[in-house]
């Protein structure tokens, strides 16, 4: 016996039920359901259409990554390049200054730490600051070279004066004033000529030194000393002639005696 036979059955009632007017869903209802089915399948078909294009083109992905990386590096390059050059500039003079045993004020000079640029304007300001620091460093280097040149010129002038003072008797018999005047001229001209040979010497400083020497030559010591004080106050780090420095570094009382003064200083006091 099957399951269907187990169920109660009424043949007449079944026939009556099948004879009922057949209700059918409206066309609008059919259209709504079929449209929903189409919408449900549309995204999957679309995804199948574009996804393989992404999947089979790793070159395109690599090109995009390279482009982005290149743009990133290009964006950072203008701010990174001066930073490296500043670092290279600051390391070289430091070693140079240590070897020359310059005054500690110059040797200890270091550029201020640069703040991280946050915007285009900040980057531009940082760039200007770096440029100014680089120029200041170059100026210090130029004055170092000038100081060395001045020292050499001074040594040369001292040698010349020593040779003239050590002349034989006929030459020594010449008037002391003329000898001292010539030595003073040599003292005046030789260092300045050597210093002028360096193109990096500040013309203004050179001119002031020349004026001081001229004042000394004509005997206006007070004005010369005043000019010297002002010069050393304005240019404390610059290389200045050692004879002038020694003249006014000694006590005023001893400056006029000239017994233990250098040759140039004694010659200057003789002129006075």
């Amino acid at each position: 016996m099957t399951e269907e036979h187990v169920l109660p059955h009424d043949e007449a009632l079944s026939r009556q039920y099948r004879a009922l007017a057949e209700e059918t869903p409206s066309p609008a209802l059919d259209a709504a359901i079929l449209a929903a089915a189409e919408r449900a399948t549309a995204p999957r078909r679309a995804s199948r259409r574009w996804w393989p294009a992404w999947r089979i083109s790793p070159q395109w992905t690599t090109a995009c990554a390279t482009l982005l990386l290149g743009g990133f590096v290009y964006t950072l390059w203008p701010s990174a390049q001066p930073e490296r050059s500043i670092t290279a500039d600051t390391h070289k003079p430091a070693a140079h200054e240590q070897s020359d045993a310059t005054p500690p004020r110059i040797a200890q000079w270091q550029p201020a730490p640069l703040p991280a640029p946050t915007s285009a304007r900040a980057q531009q300001a940082a760039r200007h600051r770096e440029e100014a620091q680089r120029l200041a460093k170059a100026e210090h280097q130029a004055f170092d070279a000038a100081r060395v040149a001045a020292r050499e010129a001074e040594e040369l002038a001292s040698e010349k004066v020593s040779k003239q003072l050590a002349l034989p008797a006929p030459a020594a018999a010449a008037p002391a004033a003329s000898v001292m005047a010539r030595s003073s001229e040599a003292e005046l001209s030789a260092p300045l000529a050597d210093m002028a040979s360096s193109p990096q010497i500040d013309e203004r400083l050179q001119r002031e030194i020349r004026q001081i020497r001229q004042l000394l030559a004509v005997g206006r010591n007070a004005e010369a000393e005043h000019a010297w004080r002002r010069l050393t106050a304005v240019h404390p780090r610059h290389a200045l002639p050692e004879d002038l420095r020694a003249r006014w570094a000694a006590p005023p009382a001893a400056a006029g005696i000239g017994a233990s003064q250098p040759a140039a200083a004694s010659s200057a006091s003789s002129i006075e």
Partner: peptide, 14 residues
């Protein structure tokens, strides 16, 4: 069954 089949209409069954 015969009684039902002879007397009912579709609307009545509904």
């Amino acid at each position: 069954d015969a009684t039902v089949a002879n007397r009912q209409s579709g609307q009545q069954l509904r």
